[in-house]
Design a protein around this nucleic acid. Structure first.
Length: 323
DNA sequence: TGCAGTGTTGCTTC
DNA sequence: CGAAGCAACACTGC
């Protein structure tokens, strides 16, 4: 779901659409004490405080740290949003309806915005009203998302941000640094290592499968056993190729506006296209798309996640020495 | 009809 | 410390 390319696409959309807008008010479905106490949108740092801090502030800029979105406001405060599994930010025109004692936001029927035709509007948890008369709505079907506000001076010292490893696409995240991080877990399946946000940040289940497929490395390979460089010209089956493919696959995800295999939409409600470019993820039982390979895509549970891979061209490197 | 599967993270346990 | 397992929740598909 939202992995690095999807979160970046969302952040780019926020910077494009919300520039110079002021948040006139906010609303939340979690406006009741019965939901307080958990570390997610339910407590919204106790909604009244959140509302008091955020209302009236102007949007300055959004940025991405791993899979987190940081939104700087003009009043020296920053909103952190992690979309987790099913979070969606949607920008468009909504109207507040009263249904008995219950308040419900519904898309404006006359608006042409694609965001407003999405089923995610059934699960709105938080709505920012903006000075252009439109709204930024946050939908979160499974209610796993995290949203809170802190002084901007503290944004990078939050555990959510400070404990992240280097960003997978950062310019200064060199091959040497990549190896250093990967080798901190020398005997753990590479699939799990790539998903560990404290080692490097931004990679999720889909892109990890795709980069391992492209690099020709079996997801159960252990880092210490994978050659650093490959002998042949193709640079395949090595940490070097994995590093290279990591960059390529994530950049491609970004280029195609993210991956909507599941239900990702950008803030205008438009799906991405990367789901049509998969070679491994959710291709179980299909013939491997690699030229001349002819293998069949397998699926395996690794670290509680499903991994998809070609058992023919993805080499399994494991250490012989068992402890 | 019921239950496994789905993406991400955090907490508990060993 | 690391790693496994499960919980947080809701919906889809077999």
């Amino acid at each position: 779901m939202p992995e690095l390319p999807e979160v970046q696409t969302t952040v780019d959309g926020l910077n494009l659409r919300l520039k110079n807008l002021t948040i006139t008010d906010i609303w939340s479905s979690y406006n009741s004490a019965s939901h307080a106490g958990k570390d997610n949108i339910k407590n919204v740092l106790y909604f009244k405080n959140f509302r008091a801090v955020v209302s009236g502030a102007k949007f300055l800029k959004a940025e991405r740290r791993g899979k987190n979105i940081l939104i700087d406001l003009s009043n020296q405060h920053t909103v952190l949003i992690h979309m987790k599994m099913t979070g969606h930010l949607l920008y468009g025109s909504y109207n507040l309806h009263k249904d008995g004692g219950k308040e419900i936001w519904r898309p404006d029927k006359n608006a042409a915005n694609e965001a407003l035709h999405d089923p995610f509007n059934q699960h709105l948890r938080l709505v920012f009203s903006l000075s252009d008369g439109k709204q930024l709505a946050f939908s979160d079907m499974r209610k796993f998302a995290k949203v809170f506000v802190v002084p901007t001076s503290e944004k990078y010292t939050l555990p959510d941000i400070a404990e992240l490893g280097p960003d997978a696409l950062a310019k200064n995240f060199t091959f040497e640094k990549f190896c250093e991080q990967i080798l901190k877990r020398p005997n753990t399946a590479i699939k799990q290592v790539l998903l560990d946000q404290s080692l490097m940040s931004g990679i999720g289940n889909i892109y990890s499968d795709e980069m391992l497929w492209a690099a020709g490395i079996h997801p159960l390979s252990t880092p210490a056993a994978i050659p650093k460089n490959s002998a042949n010209q193709s640079m395949n089956h090595s940490l070097k190729s994995l590093y290279k493919e990591m960059r390529i696959v994530l950049e491609r995800g970004l280029h195609f506006g993210g991956d909507s295999e599941s239900d990702y939409r950008n803030i205008d409600g438009v799906p991405g296209e990367f789901q049509n470019k998969h070679h491994a993820y959710r291709h179980t039982g299909e013939v491997c798309a690699k030229r001349g390979c002819g293998g069949i895509i397998q699926r395996l549970k690794i670290g509680g996640r499903s991994a998809h891979f070609c058992s023919k061209h993805q080499t399994r490197f494991t250490s012989n020495k068992k402890k």
